[in-house]
Simulated assay, not measured.
Amino acid sequence: MGYYVKTDDDVKIYVEDINPKCDKTILFIHGWPANHNLFEYQFDELPKLGYRCIGIDIRGFGKSDKPAEGYDYDRLADDVRCVVNAIKLKNFTLGGHSVGGAIAIKYMSRHKGYGVSKLALFAAAAPSLTRRPEFPAGISKEDVTALIEQTYVDRPKMLRTFGEMFFFQNITKPFSQWFFNLGLEASGIATAAVATSFRDEELFSDIKKIEVPTLILHGIHDKVCLFPLAVALSQGIKDSKLVPFENSGHGLFYEEKDKFNKELIKFIED
């Protein structure tokens, strides 16, 4: 079922809640520039195995409100806390893909992991998506700036270009169109603003504050969040496990969905 949760600044966040009567809960935070439907192939399978799957659309994306501001990691993490409070989540697994992984990490740091028993990071945009003098592993800030500029000039073209680098394996034209449509549901303001956040923000101090078991799933062919980011996360987060995906790019949740689902379930059940 779907419903809305109002944040403390009166922005309504859309929540898709599947199998709400089940105790085993996973809260998914999607990546840029999509929405909760990015996890369709998890939502298809995991509820059959007794999991409650909750997907949220971060502000500005999908069915959530699209304000003019509030797209830094702190505010986005606060939105997650508002959802957790509203539906009284406890002892749940928090999972995030790409910038959703960065938001999940910020939640763990800023809100001291409130309610979270385990953390799962999928091709996370952390500890820094972009290269820095002390961290040469990311992509260039100029590349992200180009995406931001293209968003304001021709957002559909930007989404097409980004979609072409998202997957390592060949995908069908209908699937490519489906992924493209997810990006179109976002606002242009939010698309550019969140890209600015993942270009400029870093989470080196935040990862040191994670106190729960953490699973890191990452495609070795990822051109968006390069694989060395996953290595840095595994080195910086105590009690973490890194599982490389040999046949995936940034879209490992689809490209190797059976392995993805299996690893996630194994992690939760252990």
Rank of each mutant, 00 (worst) to 15 (best):
I58V: 15
V80W: 02
R59V: 06
K88I: 03
N85M: 07
Y73V: 04
D57S: 13
R59H: 11
V80E: 14
A68M: 12
C53M: 10
I56Y: 01
K66I: 05
I87D: 05
K66T: 04
G70H: 10
Y71V: 00
K63R: 13
Y73N: 08
K66Q: 08
R81E: 08
I58A: 02
G62W: 00
R75S: 13
I58P: 01
I56Q: 01
E69N: 13
Y73W: 04
L76R: 10
N85D: 15
D72P: 01
S64I: 05
I54P: 00
Y71I: 02
C53Q: 00
L76E: 04
G60N: 10
G60V: 13
D74Q: 13
S64G: 11
K66Y: 09
G60P: 13
Y73A: 10
V84A: 09
K63F: 09
P67L: 14
K66G: 06
F61T: 02
C82G: 06
D57A: 08
D72C: 07
G60A: 10
R59T: 03
F61L: 06
D74H: 15
E69H: 05
G55L: 02
V80H: 04
G70T: 10
G70P: 10
K88V: 05
D78P: 03
Y73S: 12
D57G: 07
A68W: 04
R59A: 01
C82I: 04
V80I: 15
D65W: 14
R75I: 13
C53F: 00
D79R: 12
K66D: 03
Y71F: 14
I56F: 01
D74N: 10
D57M: 11
